[in-house]
């Protein structure tokens, strides 16, 4: 089997007396969708930020394996390399579309930015690609020149997804991508993410407190509580036969769909 894309070991992080990460290990392989679930304050968002290189752990390592198979320590590669990674091989989808979009730039410009950042210099080509991606995320291409602030919340989030996936990253970090959206809008977005990720074979690290979202999208689940991974495994195994008391509580709190 393939070597992991991202491999983290012995991650520790404390905010004063609070242990955000307590000896956490995780790996993610190409094309795999892994969900990190847990309630607010469980450390799941800290884990995402540490894995994405946005926050340095007190201890532990995170290795990223590039397409050539060379492993790079995420926290030792330097900001320039990390940024290059963030606009090529990696992507980040924020909970709040405003954090992931440029609200003063048109939908087409938002999608085109990553292309231009990696050297696309043909206006017509960039526009064609942006049009294609708007269609893929079910936004009317006629709105290519509209500003995202004229879009609904669900559309903004879909635009953020298009903007992130346009360069076909190998690994995408998603922080509560459906948080703050209406339930009907959530379902459509989740389904869209599911289809795109399967289609493109992208590995996804998804942080969510939404068990239903994790069940729909993830191949594997890690359950976090108080900075520790209390249970992990195949999504249906963890959710249908939860072992840890906290996982049982989490699963029992969800209304059956």
């Amino acid at each position: 089997m393939s070597a992991p894309l991202l491999e983290a070991k012995g991650l520790n992080l404390a905010f004063g007396a609070v242990r955000a990460l307590d000896d956490v290990a995780i790996d993610i392989h190409p094309g795999e969708v892994v969900a990190i679930v847990g309630e607010s304050g469980s450390g799941k968002s800290s884990l995402l930020r540490v894995l994405a290189g946005q926050m340095r752990p007190d201890a532990g390592t995170v290795l990223y394996r590039d397409p050539a198979g060379t492993a790079h320590p995420v926290h030792g590669m330097g900001e320039a390399a990390l940024r290059r990674l963030m606009r090529t091989d990696w992507g980040f989808v924020h909970q709040n579309a405003r954090d992931g979009l440029r609200m003063g730039v048109s939908a087409g410009g938002n999608v085109g930015e990553r292309l231009m950042a990696i050297g696309a210099r043909h206006y017509g080509g960039i526009r064609e690609e942006a049009t294609e991606w708007l269609k893929r995320v079910e936004i009317d291409p006629a709105r290519i020149d509209h500003l995202p602030r004229t879009f609904s919340g669900g559309m903004q989030q879909r635009l953020q997804i298009a903007r992130t996936l346009v360069t076909r990253p190998r690994l995408v970090f998603m922080d509560e991508p459906t948080g703050g959206l209406d339930v009907s809008v959530q379902a459509r977005l989740l389904d869209l993410i599911r289809a795109l990720v399967a289609d493109l074979g992208i590995a996804v690290l998804l942080v969510t407190h939404d068990i239903a979202a994790a069940r729909l999208l993830a191949h594997r689940i890690l359950v976090m509580r108080r900075g520790q991974v209390v249970e992990h495994g195949l999504t249906d195994r963890v959710l249908d036969d939860p072992q840890h008391p906290y996982t049982q509580l989490l699963v029992a709190s969800v209304l059956a769909a």
Partner: peptide
């Protein structure tokens, strides 16, 4: 088997 092997 771990989760990935089970999927396989």
């Amino acid at each position: 088997a771990d989760a990935r092997a089970t999927r396989e």
